[in-house]
Structure formats: structure tokens, C-alpha cells
Design a protein around this nucleic acid. Sequence first.
DNA 1: CATGGTGTGTAGTGTATAGTACACACTATT
DNA 2: AATAGTGTGTACTATACACTACACACCATG
Lengths: 118, 118
Amino acid sequence: MNDIFGTYIREKRTRLQQANKRYSLRQTAARIGIEPSYLSKIERGEQSYLSEEKISALALDLDEDPDVLLALNGKISRDIQEIIRKRPQLFARLIRELKNMPDQAVLKLVREVRDGDW
Amino acid sequence: MNDIFGTYIREKRTRLQQANKRYSLRQTAARIGIEPSYLSKIERGEQSYLSEEKISALALDLDEDPDVLLALNGKISRDIQEIIRKRPQLFARLIRELKNMPDQAVLKLVREVRDGDW
DNA sequence: CATGGTGTGTAGTGTATAGTACACACTATT
DNA sequence: AATAGTGTGTACTATACACTACACACCATG
């Protein structure tokens, strides 16, 4: 189904594997704490279920952005979900408004918030 | 576990029931398409699993905000999730920045976006 | 006093999610 | 020729999630 997540991490891992043999499927699986056969299935898109914890561990291991890997897996990190659930109306409105805004516009908001005069 | 969702909808429903007998547990359950015993369990917090579809239907029926009911149930609506997953880094940054901002500040952003000059 | 409507208790169900365990075939090394 | 390491196939498992089905006890009311 969701073979884009699998394809993405397989490409990244095999690229790292060229330079360093510790990025074999088996060793990587061992580091993130799953069976090699399971990681194999996931990379080939045969099975795409992987918990947030494992995805985050994998992101750390492969030097990838956890939020990106989670998104490729159809997930959103728990801390983000928590923030939204605490003020659902507020964030729902904001996020829907931003749906079609270009990246630049959203980034401008981020900057505005960070060094803003609130 | 999550008896706040149940308590909330039970209160709202029974309040509506005072004025209109069509808001009995049985009739309400029938309108949203679940068994009365199941709605009973949910309202008493014994079981809190309810799909997004049923929660939205319930929100509509009880004249409540779907995003709020979903949040009380530990969920976030699919359309919001989709928006975030399409640009995970961007939205992750923005949302985390806004975590501790007061409502007013976030609302100001919403307004800025809506009638902004992008 | 039966009938209709109320809420609830108990038991069971199907699918999704998140994996393990182990055997197999292949390649590289020693 | 044995050994270590590679990826993969098959079968199985446990828990979470999202419900249904049906029986029960308790009012009202005609």
C-alpha cells in the first residue's frame, strides 16, 4: 500500500550502507529494536505498520526528520497532536486557513511568531 | 478511561432531552447509526471508542463542534491531518512554536492570514 | 395489565495495528 | 569446507479499535 515510506527509507539506508556496513538491514533493525524480516517487509512496502517510537528511532538512526518519516507513514507525532487537542477550535481554524498558502507565507508566520512582540 | 468525552455528551444530550424527547439515548443512537447499548457505554465512559464518522454525526446532531468532540475523544479530524502530512516540517515547526502562545495571539494570526496581503 | 419507550449488562465479532520466531537461500570470508 | 553475515518467506500472535445482538429491569400510559 504505502510503499513510498518503505522505498524512501530503503534508499536512504542502502546509501548509508555504501559507506558504512553498520547500515545493513539486520543491524539497522537491531538498533531500532525490530526483527530484520519485519524491516524487510516494511522497506518493500508489504507491511507498513510501524509505531511512532520505532519510526522516531529509525529517523534518528538514518539522520532523517522524524516528522517527515511519520508523515510518509501516515502519522503525526504525539506532541503535535497533544498541542492541537488542547485547543482544537483554534488550531483547526488556523490550519484550515493555511491549507493552500504557499510555504513562504507559512514560514513568514513562523518567523513572526518566534521573534514577534507578543 | 476517557470519561470526559462521555460526560460531556451525556450532559449535552440530557439537556436537549428536557426540551425534546427525540434526544433520548435510544433515538440519538439510532440517528447517528449505533446501538443504544454502545452509546450508553460511551456516555458512561466505560468504552470510549467511536469513529470519526460517528463523532461527527453526533456533533451535528447535538449541535456541537466536531473538532471539539473529536479532541475530547483524543482524535484530530482527517482533513486537518492530511494538511499537516502534506507539509510535515512546516506545520510541525509552526504548531510547536504556537504551543505556549495565548489564544489571542493565535487568533491574530488567523485573522492576518484570512485578510492578509499574500 | 399489556404495550411502548427508557437506559443498561453481558457476550461476542471483525479488522487494523504492531509486531515475533524461525527457516531459507545467497554471498563473503577464513 | 565451514562460518558469518546478508536479505527474505511463511506462519503465528497479542492488543486496540469499533462496533452488533440480545436480554433485562424499570417506568408511563392507554
